[in-house]
């Protein structure tokens, strides 16, 4: 029987190229100051799941949390080839990774047998901890972090390639397991996760995404959050024309002073 792979799909703040004030006076995020996007490492996790599906056959289910803000990450999963999607409810305001993990784990359990749970390793700006670890604790499953390839996949175990500081380790773990997917998943070319499939997008644009009601007690809050603005660290960027020898020389002189 092919594996069932659940993938966590988070909608996170898009914190690239932020301009202007993000916080209001009370330290809250100013509505409208930020856009959201599909968490890029979760997108890598989805890509890994879909590659397993391409190679071995698998059922891929995307699991999200809460109502979409701007990006319909779960439908985007369906457009790329996920077989189903569900969303967990609740605890969003709590902004504690542990609380999110409890709701997501409940949704994963509701799917029946799941062999692999994939999620991006990165901790988004607004999260405090590694979601994968908290999911593993909630589910009582083993977990491997910083996975960027699957070496071997059998009915009841997986060998994952884990990126560490000075190279790679190949870790075998029984299934079901949580794999936290890192950044270096992608091969040289294509360099980006797959885009949507047009026919699927046409078919799935109105797909109902079932909501999994919360059955567990919410996790008790372990922390509270306060935000404060950081004064901008202005980098004066000077553009240097590579054809201009005098400019290059001036740059080297200035940069090497004191180095």
């Amino acid at each position: 029987m092919p594996h069932t792979i659940a993938v966590i799909a988070r909608e996170v703040w898009d914190t690239r190229d932020l301009t202007g004030q993000i916080l209001d006076e009370a330290g809250g995020l100013r509505p409208g100051a930020l856009q959201t996007r599909f968490d890029p490492e979760d997108l890598n996790a989805l890509e890994l799941a879909l590659r397993i599906k391409d190679a071995h056959g698998a059922r891929v289910v995307a699991v999200g949390l809460g109502a979409p803000r701007q990006v319909e990450v779960l439908r985007e999963c369906l457009y790329r080839g996920a077989d189903a999607a569900v969303t967990a409810t609740g605890d969003l305001a709590a902004a504690d990774t542990a609380a999110h993990a409890r709701r997501l784990a409940g949704a994963v359990r509701s799917l029946g047998r799941v062999d692999l749970l994939l999620v991006g390793t990165a901790v988004p700006d607004d999260d405090n901890s590694l979601l994968a670890r908290h999911l593993a604790a909630e589910l009582g499953w083993p977990a491997v972090s910083w996975v960027d390839a699957i070496e071997e996949l059998a009915v009841d175990r997986v060998v994952a390639r884990r990126a560490v500081e000075m190279g790679y380790e190949y870790v075998e773990t029984p299934l079901p397991a949580v794999l936290a997917v890192g950044v270096a998943l992608l091969e040289d070319d294509p360099r980006a996760p797959r885009p949507a499939k047009a026919m699927l997008k046409l078919k799935m644009k109105k797909a109902e995404i079932p909501t999994v009601p919360a059955t567990d007690e919410p996790a008790p809050l372990t922390l509270r959050v306060r935000r404060e603005a950081v004064p901008p660290r202005a980098i004066e960027t000077a553009t240097v024309d590579p054809e201009n020898e005098a400019a290059l020389r001036a740059m080297l002189d200035a940069a090497l002073k004191g180095a």
């Binding site: 985007e76 360099r191 885009p195 949507a196 499939k197 047009a198 997008k201 046409l202 644009k205």
Partner: peptide, 28 residues
């Protein structure tokens, strides 16, 4: 017909030009 009306169809065209078309062109 996959759409209930022209607005919905147009929204799909725009979405499709963004992803996959614009996405695949720029990044792959």
């Amino acid at each position: 017909c996959p759409w209930s009306g022209p607005d919905e169809a147009k929204a799909t065209f725009v979405e499709m030009l963004r992803d996959p078309v614009g996405e695949i062109a720029a990044n792959r």
